[in-house]
Design a protein around this nucleic acid. Structure first.
Lengths: 90, 90
DNA sequence: GAGATATTTATACAAGTGTCTAAATGTTGT
DNA sequence: ACAACATTTAGACACTTGTATAAATATCTC
């Protein structure tokens, strides 16, 4: 289990970004306008999430669209369930 | 979902501590001797884990015994499953 | 190609974090 | 009460991180 994964999840702005991407894929700009911080700062967060493989991105014209990498989330869930006895039926 | 929870999980030493406590409850000293860092540093980590409610402790004579708070882990699992579509049957 | 829009990269800085050593606190046994 | 042991707390310091502004890169339209 990679360290960058948990460090990426440690920031509330990044977790909010992930939740936004749960609803639907979004461009960097669509994501950035949801936050009171500078676009460049959001871009930095997106880079962290991407480095942790929590999101993927692809260019779409002048936009760059981000989407959740659900595979990694299942790994996180498995990490907690196997090590810390999360209730599988919950 | 509290911010301190994810920040607590972001450090590899702390995750290792949690894994040690999965096996069995341990005193601060038993935990500390598993790591190459100073006892005081481990104590600091234990404080962080306790503040995040991931572990609980109780004095036992001169020792202080730590144990996992499994309830919070189930909350973490639920957080990921509900928001990010982890496979409930996995 | 120039200008407009979308996004990232570079740089700087204040705040936060992990570690250390030293000192403090709590407990036990003499 | 004192000494020994177990653990935490206090301060200090290097390193990381989240943010900002400014500059760079990429795409689109004219």
């Amino acid at each position: 289990m990679d360290d960058s994964l948990f460090r990426a999840l440690a920031d509330p702005t990044r977790r909010k970004i992930l939740e936004l991407l749960t609803e639907k894929d979004r461009t960097a700009g669509e994501i950035a306008e949801q936050f009171p911080i500078a676009f460049a700062s959001v871009s930095h967060h997106l880079g962290v999430l991407k480095a942790a493989d929590l999101v993927a991105s692809e260019r779409e014209g002048q936009f760059i669209r981000y989407r959740l990498n659900t595979t990694v989330f299942q790994e996180v869930v498995r990490y907690f369930m196997t090590r810390f006895g999360g209730n599988h039926d919950a």
